Structure formats: C-alpha cells, structure tokens
Amino acid sequence: MAMPQSSSRWPFFVAGGILVAFIVIVLAIIFVPTSRVWTDDAYVTVHHTVIAPRVSGQVISVEVDDNQTVHKGDILATLDPNDYQTALDEARSIEARDKAQVMDAEANVARQPALIANAQAEVERLKAQLVFARQNASRYAHLARTGAGSLQEGQKSHATLDELTASYKAAQAQLEAAKAQLVVLKAKNEAAKRQVSVDQARVRQAELNLSYTQIRAPFDGMVGERNVQAGNVVPAGAPLMAVVPIDDLWIEANYREVALRHVKPGQKVHIHVDAYNIDLEGVVDSVPPASGAAFAPLAPENATGNFTKIVQRLPVKITLVPGQPLAKLLRMGFSVETTINTGLENIVEQQRHSNQSVTAR
C-alpha cells in the first residue's frame, strides 16, 4: 500500500520552518534594537605608578619583593645617604656663617647713628672755633693796620683761621660720608639677610634630597615588575618597580561606535570575569573623548585616496560597584565581558535639550 504524499513532505516543512526561524532571528538581532549591549573586548586596568628615585645613588637595600602588598608611606628601597648628608651639613654650615654676617651687619647699622652724631658734634665744635678764629684774625688785622699789633701775630691768626677752615670742611665731609655709609650698611645688611634666605632654601633642598634617599610607596597597592637589587647604582628617574593600586581597578570596555547609541554615564553594567568565571556589577563612568585609534602613536591617515571605512571602537570606562568581595580577585590586564543595560535611552534627544555633554562625566 502506497504511503500518503503529505507524510513524505514533512521533513521539507520542518527544514523550511527552521530556515525561516533562523532568518527571523538573524534579522531581529540585526534590526531590532536591544537595551543590552555586550562586548568581550574589555580588560581590567588601572592608573599604576612606576617607582623611580628623585636623586641618583647606590641602592643599599630593597625592602619589598614582587607581588608584595604595601601601604602608603612604606619604604620600598633606600639609597646611600652619606653624600646627601654631607651636602646637608655643608649647607647648614654656610647658613650659620651667613647668619653671623647678618648679625655683624646689623651691629654696624646700629652703631652708625652714633658715629654720625659724633661727626655732627665735631662739625659743631669746629664751627664754633672757626667763628672765634675769624674774629681773632679780624682783630689782629685791625691792630696791624694801626701799628698796635705785630705782623707775626697777624700771620699766626690767619694761619689758624685757614687750618680751622680746612678742618671744618673735612669734618663736614666726614659727616656726609658717615650718613652715606649708613645707607651702604643698610644695603649690606639687607643683602646678608637675602643671602641667608638663599642658604635656607639650599638647606631645605639638601634636606629634601636626603629624604629622597628613602623611596616610599605613594599609595596602597601591590608591587610588580621589580627590577632593582641592592648594590645597583641608579640615576634619577630610573624605573625600579611598579605599584598597582588594586583597590582602584576599573574596566576599559572597547565598544563599537554604533553600539554606543544609547550608552551614558550611570547605567548599570554586568561584568563577567573569565579568569575566575565570576560575575560582578559595575557602572558606566564615562564615554571617552576619542576613539582608541585617535590616541595611537601613528594616527591613521585617511586622506591618501585609498580610504576604507572602518567602524571605530571607543574605550568606555566602567567602574566597579563598591562592596563586592570578589572584586579583590581582579588583577590588571584580566579579560572580561561587559553588558551595559542602556534601557534604550534616547541620548540624541537628551543632548538636544542640554548645553552640557550627556555622555561625559
């Protein structure tokens, strides 16, 4: 007995139904907007610090090792302080010497008014003597004309007058010099004080240089990439190790620009960590000001005539929600997957009614 025609066609109907369903699903994925945008081009990162000495010297000890946890202010390494201690001692000695010179200059300034007063008194004394000598010379001149006085006495009185006149002028010059010397002494005193200020700055710099021989952790974190050993002679600025602030890690998720249509700061993010197969919660911190290619050392040149349009990726910054114990497992460089719940927010419309950037922090 022959089988019905319909029963022999049902595999084609099933296959056709599966094909139609597949096409519908693909078209829905492509054209139907979704409130959740996902990427696996995401990594754990942090602004870490490369530890380098601010002065040169020989390393006499290294207090930490790779992967060691440190706290702010902990000594990481120590340079030989002897040269810097000697420089500090020398700077302090120079400061003490110049302070003594300031005291001497101040004493000279304080003494000078008395010398001026003494010179003034000498001028007044000679002025009085000069008045008497002029009167005496006039008297002898009159006596000489009448024949009552001798020529010798007249000449002597004139000589005395000339001598007192010269002494009076010299005393006046000394008085003016004493007054001018006061200005000079004040200037020297001020210069000595300024020199002490310079010496104090040099002492402070020498103290800083000595303190720089102890290289300390700038914040809490974990040591990595240690490449220094006791006995090494290192120049200023040479990288010794890195300190990574483990508690300040964040996610850099590189989303395609077309996926950011509804993304803005404050939206919740689901984070899956590949290393431990765990899930964490985060928040969109900000959308960057430029794509990753814009900050590349060799920026793409699109004006050469062979331009090919490529969808760019922007590194969206995602911060972790506080209070997640599993976040302590994260390490810089881990690969993660992020899914932003955008809620299909109308970013364009929001920006149209705002003078501030709605996608910036």
Rank of each mutant, 00 (worst) to 15 (best):
W10S: 04
I18K: 00
I18P: 00
I18S: 00
A21M: 03
A21G: 06
L27R: 09
V32F: 12
T34L: 02
T34K: 06
R36I: 13
D41E: 08
V46M: 03
H48S: 09
T49K: 00
V50H: 03
R54E: 15
R54P: 00
V55Y: 04
V55W: 01
S56N: 02
S56R: 07
V62I: 08
E63K: 14
V64W: 03
D80N: 15
P81M: 07
E90S: 14
R92C: 08
R92Y: 06
S93T: 15
I94C: 01
M103A: 15
A105W: 06
N108I: 06
I116Q: 12
A117L: 14
A117S: 14
A119R: 01
A121S: 15
A121G: 12
R125S: 13
K127I: 00
F132H: 02
A133I: 00
A133V: 05
R134D: 11
S138E: 15
S138W: 13
S138K: 15
G149V: 01
S150T: 15
E153L: 07
L161Q: 12
D162S: 08
D162E: 15
E163H: 05
L164M: 01
A166C: 02
S167W: 03
Q172N: 11
A173I: 04
Q181R: 12
E190F: 04
A191I: 10
V196L: 04
R202I: 10
R204I: 04
R204C: 00
E207L: 10
L208K: 06
N209R: 06
N209E: 11
L210F: 11
L210A: 13
S211Y: 09
R216N: 09
P218R: 04
V223C: 06
G224F: 09
E225Q: 14
R226W: 09
V228T: 11
A230P: 14
G231L: 08
V233L: 13
V233H: 12
V234D: 11
A236E: 02
G237M: 11
A242F: 01
D248I: 00
L249Q: 01
A253I: 02
A259E: 15
G266H: 08
H270S: 10
H270F: 08
H270M: 04
I271V: 13
N277A: 11
L280Y: 02
L280N: 01
L280S: 03
V283T: 15
V283M: 05
D285N: 13
V287P: 11
P289C: 03
G292E: 10
A293V: 12
P297G: 06
L298N: 08
P300T: 03
P300V: 04
E301Y: 03
T304S: 09
G305H: 05
N306Q: 12
F307T: 10
K309D: 10
K309Y: 14
I310N: 01
T319Q: 10
A327S: 12
A327R: 07
E337I: 01
I340T: 01
H353Q: 13
N355T: 11
V358C: 07
T359L: 12
A360K: 15
